[in-house]
């Protein structure tokens, strides 16, 4: 299984490098704006005039601090969105994309159950997202040191982990749907819809009291309700794991029993 996962990682190495470079550039560009934002007079007073629900929803309370600024600018929507997009594209391609192209056929006619392949590809998807998370960790730590943002190492680790959890959850869902159906577009569509719906539920749950109890059904809410950069690690993030496990088990069950496209 390790060999299979490493093979998948090796095939994706250049794409991963491109994503890592792009995300590092984004972190550096947004962090570079921090000194000018920090020096705006009366920013905190202005933000305090906003409705409390709005401040909560978008984490505006601490925007005048380095951690609060990066939390709003990077970790509340941009990085969760990018990590989800990256992981969904990987997860959807690893079984469904390869099946549609015909590349998967010889790899399924081997003395191994298909669920081994799926488990290895799940590991590869998680590993790719973790590697991207390590890139974010390095970029934020570097920017924090250079621009004197004063963010502790533990908080940066927690924030990077939070986007890894969000990305992995959506990537594994795309992988599971792809394995269950063999259709890449469907895998991207379902996982993308879950990500968007999860984010909307998170925002709506913060703004509207009646929707709040439903927030725990959103993987994004489970993570973003406790932002790592300002609040540190949270055990509620790991409640995302059962979503992924259920999706993968269902995907594996269907993958073992369905027809594979012969192209």
């Amino acid at each position: 299984m390790t060999a299979l996962a490493l093979q998948a990682l090796w095939r994706d190495r250049w794409s991963l490098v491109r994503w890592a470079v792009g995300i590092t550039a984004l972190v550096v560009a947004l962090s570079a704006l921090w000194p000018s934002i920090h020096s705006v007079d009366g920013l905190q007073t202005m933000l305090e005039a906003y409705p409390a629900a709005l401040r909560d929803a978008f984490g505006l309370d601490q925007i005048s601090t380095g951690a609060g600024y990066l939390d709003v600018e990077l970790f509340s929507i941009v990085l969760p969105g990018l990590f989800s997009a990256f992981a969904i594209s990987r997860g959807a391609r690893l079984v469904a994309g390869d099946e549609e192209s015909g590349a998967l056929l010889p790899e399924l006619v081997v003395p191994r159950p298909r669920s081994h392949l799926l488990a290895a590809y799940a590991c590869a998807t998680c590993a790719e997202v973790v590697l991207l998370g390590v890139t974010v960790l390095g970029a934020v730590l570097g920017c924090s040191a250079v621009l004197a943002m004063g963010i502790p190492l533990g908080r940066v680790c927690a924030a990077a982990s939070s986007v890894v959890v969000i990305g992995a959850a959506h990537g594994l869902l795309a992988l599971a749907v792809g394995a269950a159906t063999g259709r890449r577009a469907l895998a991207v569509g379902v996982a993308g819809a879950v990500a968007v719906a999860g984010y909307l539920l998170h925002v709506a749950g913060t703004l509207v009291t009646g929707v709040a109890p439903w927030g725990s059904w959103s993987p994004i809410h489970l993570v973003l309700a406790h932002p790592g950069l300002t609040q540190g690690w949270s055990a509620t993030w790991w409640w995302v794991a059962p979503f992924s496990v259920v999706a993968l088990v269902a995907g594996a069950w269907s993958f073992e029993r369905r027809d594979v496209h012969l192209t």
Binding site: R11, W14, S101, G102, A103, L105, P106, V109, L262, T263
Partner: peptide
């Protein structure tokens, strides 16, 4: 078993 599909694709990269 050895199997050659009617359309063989392989891994482009």
């Amino acid at each position: 078993v050895g199997y050659l599909p009617s359309v063989f694709v392989g891994r482009a990269a």
